[in-house]
């Protein structure tokens, strides 16, 4: 029977495991990015552990006086860092709003070099959404479609622009060619004129000679 056999042992003794969970929760809460990279198994074990801590911190917000303090002390038993407890109750819990659980997200990353262990990232969903900026945490199919459409429009736009540029280039080239052709025509005309005038002069000379002969 697998009664009371839930959870992973992670190759550790009970106390070692407790310390590991405490350390990982602290790391996740204190980290600037609100995300840590570990093995997939540890990330999945950490998920329910921190979710419960965050739930408790969120519920403590509505409590008054000693009840809220008690919640802090219960959490402080599980994560040993005062700084982490403070961060959890004063920064993370208010940021979570009225999210009904599911504060964390585990994303698998593939195996790592060295021992080939499957790695993953575990992060706090609301803080991840803040970091992405443009991307909201839950993108609907509609918004995804809209993004794709805008991508297509952009590519079409750039293609049209490229074609217009190409058209301009062709026009310029045609202008250049007509210019050079005109220049050449002018030059030829000048040369023809010169040759013609030379011929005229020699003709005149010859007529002069003939006149002299007559004399």
């Amino acid at each position: 029977m697998r009664h009371l056999n839930s959870g992973r042992k992670l190759n550790r003794t009970a106390s070692h495991r407790r310390a590991l969970m405490s350390n990982m929760a602290t790391s996740l809460i204190i980290s600037d990015e609100k995300r840590i990279k570990t093995t997939e198994a540890k990330a999945k074990e950490l998920r329910p552990y921190v979710e419960k801590l965050i739930s408790r911190a969120c519920k403590a917000q509505q409590m008054e006086g000693p009840a809220g303090l008690h919640a802090r002390r219960v959490v402080a038993r599980l994560i040993k860092s005062k700084q982490a407890v403070q961060e959890l109750f004063d920064a993370i819990a208010p940021a979570m709003g009225d999210r009904p659980g599911g504060y964390t997200r585990v994303v698998k990353l593939g195996t790592r070099r060295g021992d080939g262990a499957r790695t993953a990232i575990i992060e706090l969903v609301d803080f991840a959404a803040e970091r992405d900026g443009a991307y909201s945490s839950g993108r609907s199919k509609k918004s995804r479609q809209a993004a794709e459409e805008s991508m297509i429009e952009q590519t079409i736009g750039s293609a049209v622009e490229a074609m217009e540029n190409a058209g301009d280039a062709v026009e310029e080239a045609v202008e250049d060619i007509t210019d050079t052709v005109e220049e050449v025509v002018e030059e030829v005309a000048e040369k023809v004129d010169e040759v013609v005038s030379d011929n005229d002069e020699s003709n005149e000379e010859s007529t002069d000679d003939s006149e002299e002969d007559k004399k």
């Binding site: 994303v107 698998k108 995804r144």
Partner: peptide, 17 residues
């Protein structure tokens, strides 16, 4: 890999991960 972030571009589920 299926159900994992892309090792080339770092995207998963339409987000940069």
């Amino acid at each position: 890999l299926a159900h994992a972030a892309c090792p080339e571009c770092g995207y998963y589920n339409g987000r940069k991960v």
